[in-house]
Design a binder for these strands. Structure first.
Lengths: 210, 210
DNA sequence: GTATCCACTTACCAAATGGTAGACAGATTG
DNA sequence: CAATCTGTCTACCATTTGGTAAGTGGATAC
């Protein structure tokens, strides 16, 4: 009963770290102390295991982001809360970001499901940003570009480990906090029109001229 | 004589697109209309082919960035020129970004060479930014965080194709230009302290208070 | 003209990979 | 107790994969 979940978890870690193609069922099984056939018994085929991993990861991701967004107020505080939650998630469960990246690399048809699951929440985020801009709570920008850039910074922070190494930068909690502060001050400047030096704490709600 | 280069080019494309593990020598050979053994004749083993691809890609990347940085003036214009060149490179030769990402995923020992080749130019960039900050040309920030964030946005724009799809955003030349403008206005805010709406063109040199 | 070298091929091979078939042990059910 | 179902294992299998060995045809050297 427990085995299926253990396989799913291990597969998520392995797929995120070494990629789908770099992970054989035998590898996976050995790492779990079981045989490959047990995996096939639970999931039928490697393809379906991959689908299960992608789908569950997407749902986990969406779960965190959706609840965070709903719990916050409106305008800038939402942006701040989502960025904060994203960084926390990225540090606590980097596999999820890794899987998302792997999904992008696999492309269709693998990505179909994930993209469809992600689309509504991204559309919500886009609409929210756009309405805040209409209300003058945020400066006008292409919300999709804001979302993409933000995602890229969060994802890059955890997945581009070798670039981090080349920069002599370890992604510990301190570095993650710095990164988050920097991203927030970028966004603050783009969305609120007030620039920070990166050392200042993010301010609360601000009203921007349209 | 020409074959070796053709193999190298095709391997670069394939490794960037489907990953090292997702690309077999037979695949590669068939795509080139030759046999696998011809590839092995020129490169000895798959490992050495991979090394060759990684190394040449890193050098190509460095070549573009280094000449761009040297051709510019000092302070903000350098940042602007490098970002511009990076985006142009990312659109014109996305494989190079793909290979860099793949390098990160492979990790050591594969990444060793690339990281060592990249380190000096990144160190230069860091030093340059730091000195501009010391001179008051740019606002004080952690240069490494600036570099990482900028790289993440550029790389994410070309490699996170499925996130783009989920956002209903195609990365054509127009979108790339928008992205670039957004990144530049982020950086402008962080480094010059003047925020734009994302629609304004980047301004020229500005002097910032320390 | 023969020897040599270069670029490439055909013919194999051993290991790894995803997958099938069937057996076995333990719990559940009648 | 017999029957069945569940989860796991052992035993195979076909294909793919990276790699070796042994040529082959053409250009160049002497």
């Amino acid at each position: 009963m427990d085995t299926k979940d253990r396989v799913l978890n291990q597969a998520t870690l392995a797929f995120a770290e070494r990629g789908v193609d770099g992970t054989s069922l035998d590898d996976l099984a050995q790492r779990l102390g079981i045989t490959k056939q047990t995996i096939l018994y639970h999931f039928g085929s490697k393809s379906r295991l991959i689908e299960a991993v992608l789908s569950r990861s997407a749902q986990d991701l969406i779960g965190v982001l959706a609840t965070t967004a709903k719990e916050s107020e409106v305008g800038w505080p939402v942006v701040e809360a989502v960025v904060r939650a994203s960084f926390e998630l990225a540090v606590r469960r980097p596999e999820l970001i890794g899987i998302l990246r792997e999904t992008s690399r696999l492309g269709p048809p693998w990505s179909e499901g994930v993209v469809e699951e992600l689309r509504p929440i991204l559309a919500d985020a886009e609409m929210a940003l756009r309405s805040y801009m209409d209300e003058g709570l945020l400066l006008r920008n292409d919300p999709r570009v804001i979302l993409l850039s933000s995602y890229a910074v969060v994802a890059g922070s955890v997945t581009e480990t070798e670039v981090l190494r080349a920069l002599n930068l370890r992604l510990d909690l301190r570095a993650a906090a710095t990164l988050r502060r920097t991203l927030l001050s970028f966004l603050e400047a783009a969305l609120l029109g007030q620039s920070g030096t990166g050392d200042s704490e993010a301010s609360s709600t601000g009203r921007a001229t349209k």
